[in-house]
């Protein structure tokens, strides 16, 4: 079960993820990111404080935007990952490729 709340705060799109991301629902994450991109988002914060699980299907969604975001100067920051979820990013070395911060305050520092 995955819930994605989209919230625009001071020109920054916040995507608040709750639950678990797997192959059954990763398209919802893709759609949510795609929607804010189409809306012209230049800064996207992904709040993962309530995210309990992510499989490669979800990781692949984040990865698929990295090049496009770099080309278009879109900043994406993932923050507040639970340790067990962060470790999944770390196994693949994605913590070196994706901007991951411990908290929203840190994520907003730019």
């Amino acid at each position: 079960m995955l819930n994605i709340e989209k919230r625009l705060e001071n020109d920054i799109w916040n995507l608040i993820l709750t639950g678990e991301i797997d192959a059954s629902n990763s398209v919802e994450l893709d759609a949510a990111i795609s929607e804010v991109v189409q809306d012209g988002a230049k800064s996207i914060l992904i709040d993962c404080a309530a995210l309990d699980y992510i499989s490669s299907a979800g990781l692949g969604v984040f990865m698929s935007y990295l090049d496009e975001f770099e080309e278009n100067n879109v900043k994406m920051v993932i923050f507040a990952l639970k340790d067990k979820v962060f470790q999944v990013f770390h196994i693949l070395g994605l913590d070196q490729l994706i901007d991951i911060r411990p908290s929203k305050e840190e994520a907003l520092k730019g």
Binding site: S55, S56, A57, G60, M63, S64, L92, L97
Partner: peptide, 22 residues
Amino acid sequence: EISQVIKSKRKGGLGIILVKRI
């Protein structure tokens, strides 16, 4: 390679790497 996954925007391929590393 992870870099290929990014370049090709493919959303697959990462799962098997995870399995082999875990």
